[in-house]
């Protein structure tokens, strides 16, 4: 077996929402000794490992905790208890365009988002044309992105993200958008990543995509890991639960 690059050990993530949003409500509650936050368990004692070069699909209904797993892997959240170990550089393809600034032009946004994803200016210079071609927005590149259609916006964001050379790629339901030609282009690019030994975590509701693309799947429901294993058996279990 290849070395482990992502390891979740007894990971529990609890969110505590502040029940009182302002000082006006918060201070009296604090004095009276009332509960100042309500808890919600997003992940309950999750254990799994992902090895180098694997392509793992995560499936489960909305609100089951899939995105929380990705956020823990990306390092933007830390677990309440347990341990998350991640080795290697990460590129997130989660909700693309998080760093896009509507007033800046496409070109300016390429540099901005490239930097957010950890690219050096030189690397962006080298890849600029390739990014523009991939997104297919040559003629609009000097326009502010607020004038872009949502498809163009998404294509640009995706084009930037796939030009990062990560060791771990996180893909969160982004392929639902975009026309079929662009989707095919994206999968082709992801196949290339796979061939180069990049570890990929793929969240999607399209079981077909998971089955054709991933070697293994993890099924999460109600904050708990239900089953993991070959994509076929896991998807079958998921479909049974759904019906």
């Amino acid at each position: 077996m290849q070395e482990t690059v992502i390891k979740f050990q007894n990971v529990t993530k609890k969110f505590s929402f502040q029940s009182q949003k302002t000082f006006k409500e918060f201070l009296p509650a604090l004095i009276k000794g009332e509960e100042t936050s309500t808890g919600f368990i997003a992940l309950d004692n999750i254990d799994f490992e992902i090895h180098k070069g694997e392509c793992v699909g995560i499936i489960g209904p909305n609100g089951s905790g899939k995105s929380t797993i990705l956020k823990l892997v990306a390092g933007v959240m830390s677990p309440t208890t347990g341990q998350v170990t991640v080795k290697g550089s990460i590129s997130p393809l989660i909700e693309l365009g998080a760093g896009m600034h509507p007033e800046l032009t496409g070109r300016e946004n390429i540099y901005l988002n490239g930097a957010i994803l950890g690219l050096k200016r030189k690397e962006i210079d080298q890849n600029l044309q390739s990014i523009i071609n991939f997104a297919g927005i040559e003629e609009f590149i000097n326009q502010p992105v607020k004038h872009y259609s949502s498809g163009m916006y998404m294509r640009l964001a995706f084009a930037i993200a796939v030009h990062v050379n990560p060791e771990i790629l996180i893909v969160d339901e982004i392929l639902a958008v975009g026309d079929s030609a662009f989707q095919a282009k994206c999968f082709k690019r992801m196949e290339e990543f796979k061939k180069n030994g990049v570890t990929i975590i793929f969240v999607s509701h399209a079981l077909g995509q998971i089955q054709s693309f991933c070697n293994r799947a993890i099924y999460i429901n109600h904050s708990k890991l239900v089953t993991e294993g070959s994509t076929e058996t896991v998807c079958k279990k998921y479909l049974e639960d759904q019906s």
Binding site: H101, E103, L104, E108, Y111, L112, A115, I116, G118, L119, K120, R121, P144
Partner: peptide
């Protein structure tokens, strides 16, 4: 280590403010 990002964020701040 992240100075490129810092530069881009400053640029974003300065450039975006007075557009339009």
């Amino acid at each position: 280590k992240w100075r490129e990002l810092l530069g881009q964020m400053v640029g974003r701040e300065v450039k975006a403010r007075y557009k339009q």
